[in-house]
Structure formats: structure tokens, C-alpha cells
Design a protein around this nucleic acid. Structure first.
Lengths: 195, 195
DNA sequence: ATTTAAACAGACCGATCAGTCGGTCTTAAA
DNA sequence: TTTAAGACCGACTGATCGGTCTGTTTAAAT
């Protein structure tokens, strides 16, 4: 083999990181495979050696990003924490893993390939797993009586949309400022804005 | 002239409506001029008779959608209403004008053509006008002491992101259900979820 | 009736894109 | 040392897209 197995894995991860940044910044359709190759420092042939297609790459990348995000969160979140504290922590990781604009690319991806295609089904599965994880966080908050409400699924959807939409106006903020904004927004949601 | 001035304007509006629906549903890049022609029932030549380019069409459409949205809101909103009532009304029109997913297409559009291009500048101008209008609504709520806070710009950004993000999970809902969700989400934001 | 020009239509062009394919290089096994 | 295969390269292909150009139709002006 030209390169070691490890070298190959390194190349693969370089491609994934480059693709993640570009998809997040420019969207799915607007990011070409050539763009990704330039950013990752490999050839188009090399890229297609690691991934069968653009769809394949995106799904691989999305799966990894979402999984890693919850793993990082899970390492820090403790059972002793209140659901409110866990939510603040989630907001931080939401910013950190820049999965914020990845959601956008994901929607574009889904609408482009269709929810019924095989790739669409796989992607929806990834999203659902992610959602369920968040929903269980919300359910904890409700069951413990920390939060008001009786529909964890709806509330989870609203809060996730909240965090996702928040990222719209923040493409230029640095992470520190973004985290501040997310903390403030979380506080607003918890306390309400009514006087 | 082959058709009357009125007929031409009718064709133009058909194109705009078709484009609005497609851009909202599929995004900017994923919607081709041919798609729009099919939906509008005209030829590509005819489309380019009314609009110089895809960018031109999108900006025209966005301007019209955003302007019309505030006009409709303004016709119903009365000075006697509380800011809270005005916000609920805004949520309704946000759903009605389906400008929800148009925002998404707008971001994609902006990142694709760049904020420094002439079209980008024009689009940013449209967005800013829209934002300022919303910010003045928020400022009213703060000044009247209805809502807590001292930064109307930040609060406006957060609430707009809230509404925008909410539309992610709702591509299949009908308008009645969507309005219900938006009203509930507005209530959550006002009251807070903390017990 | 003739002319004029707006309102279309559709063939066409160059660019770009996702994906393919044959080939080269390097490492590890035999 | 030979060989086999994984890692990688880059030219090529077919399709698609935005945009142009030439031509045709028709309502209105003369």
C-alpha cells in the first residue's frame, strides 16, 4: 500500500474536516467535490477512493459530527446536574461542534435527494437518533418538575429549532461571543421575556 | 405587443409565485430556471425577458415577499394593541407568507454570491429594512415595560432566529397547525419554561 | 394596411459538476 | 526480489445549468 493504513485514515479525516467546514459555510449544493479536494489537499480520484459519492460523504460526515457532539456532551454532563444545567451545557456544545449550520446543509441535502431515497432514509435515521437524545433531555426536565409543559416531543422540537435558528445571524461571531449569545438565549427561554 | 401590459404583468407574477414556492421548498441552488419555467408555464426565453438573471429574480421576489408581509401585518396591527398582541400577530403572518423557508434560501443565496457583490448588497439592504421593522416592534415592547431586557437589537435577532428555526421541522404541516405551533412557541418565549 | 416593438419561444453555448477509469507509486506480504 | 493490492492521481465523460441569440407572434400605433 502506498501509504500506511494510518496515513489513509488521516487523509480520510482531512477530507471529512474539509467537507464539514465547506458544507457548513456554503451549503451542500454550493460545495463541489473539487472544492473539498482543494481544501483537504488531495485529488478527486483520492477522494472517490474513500467515499463512493457526495451523498455518501455527507452522510458519513453528518453521522460522525452528530455522534461526536453527543459523546462530548455526555462526557461532561453528570446525572447530578439539573436539566437546566444540562441544557446550558448542550448550548455550549451546540456552538462548539459548529453543527449549527450543518443542520442547514442537512435540510438542503434532504430536500435535494428526497426523503424516500436510501440516502435520505439513512440521514433521517441519524437525525431521529439525535432528536431522541435531545428529547430525553427535555423529558428529564419535565419529569423532574423543572420545566413547565406536558409534550416533550413538541418542546424538544421548539428548543432545537430555537438553537438552530439562532445560528443564522451569527456566521461571523467568534465562538466566545456565540456562546454568550446562546447562554443569554437559553436564559430568555427559561425565564421568559414577559415582565 | 403580443400580450397586453396586464397580461405581461400576470406572467411576471406567475413566474414570481412559482419561483417563491420552489426556492422555499428546494433552496436557491437546487432550483433551476427550467424548474421555474415549468411551474410558471412559460419558456426560458420568456423568463429572461422579465428578469435579467437568477439573482435578479431572487432579489425581486425577496423584496416583494418581505415588503408584502409587513404591509399585511401593518393593515391589521393597531396602535392600541400591546406589543405582545402585535408579536402574536407577527407570528401568524410569518407563517402565512411562508417567508419562513425563504430565509433559508436567502442565506444560501447570500453565501453563494458573496455579501460584497452588488446583488449581495441589495439583498442585505432588504434584510436590514426588514430587521429594523421588527426591531422597532421589539423596542416598543421594551419601552412600554411589557418585556424584560435592554438590548432591542439582540432581542430582535434572537426572536427572529427563533421563528426562523421553528420552520425547520415543519415542512409538511398545514398552515393551521403551523400557526398553532407558532402561537405556542410565542407563549413559551413570553412566559418561559421554568417552573 | 403597414409598421413597430413588446412578449414570448426554443435552439444553442460555454462552464461546471459528479462520477469513472486507466494508470502510477509505495508498502507489505510471499 | 518479486508480487499483490491498497492509496492516490488526473484526464475524461455525460449531464445539467445559467445565460444568449435568433426568430415568431400579436396588439397597438400610424
Amino acid at each position: 500500500m502506498k501509504k500506511t493504513k494510518d496515513d489513509a485514515e488521516l487523509t480520510k479525516q482531512a477530507i471529512v474536516e474539509a467537507a464539514k467546514g465547506l458544507f457548513s459555510a456554503k451549503g451542500y449544493a454550493a460545495t463541489s467535490m473539487a472544492d473539498i479536494c482543494s481544501a483537504a489537499g488531495c485529488s478527486r480520484g483520492g477522494l472517490y477512493h474513500h467515499f463512493d459519492s457526495k451523498e455518501d460523504l455527507f452522510i458519513y460526515l453528518a453521522d460522525q459530527a452528530f455522534t461526536v457532539s453527543w459523546e462530548q456532551w455526555g462526557e461532561v454532563a453528570r446525572d447530578g446536574m439539573t436539566a437546566t444545567e444540562q441544557l446550558y451545557l448542550y448550548a455550549d456544545y451546540f456552538v462548539d461542534t459548529l453543527q449549527k449550520p450543518l443542520n442547514k446543509a442537512g435540510e438542503e441535502f434532504l430536500s435535494r435527494i428526497g426523503p424516500d431515497s436510501e440516502a435520505g432514509q439513512r440521514f433521517i435515521g441519524i437525525l431521529q437518533t439525535y432528536m431522541q437524545r435531545f428529547e430525553s433531555l427535555v423529558r428529564t426536565g419535565l419529569e423532574r418538575g423543572e420545566w413547565k409543559g406536558d409534550n416533550p416531543q413538541e418542546l424538544a422540537m421548539i428548543i432545537l429549532g430555537y438553537y438552530s435558528g439562532l445560528s443564522d445571524s451569527i456566521p461571523m461571531m467568534d465562538k466566545a461571543d456565540a456562546k454568550k449569545l446562546y447562554r443569554k438565549a437559553t436564559m430568555l427561554l427559561l425565564e421568559g421575556i414577559k415582565q
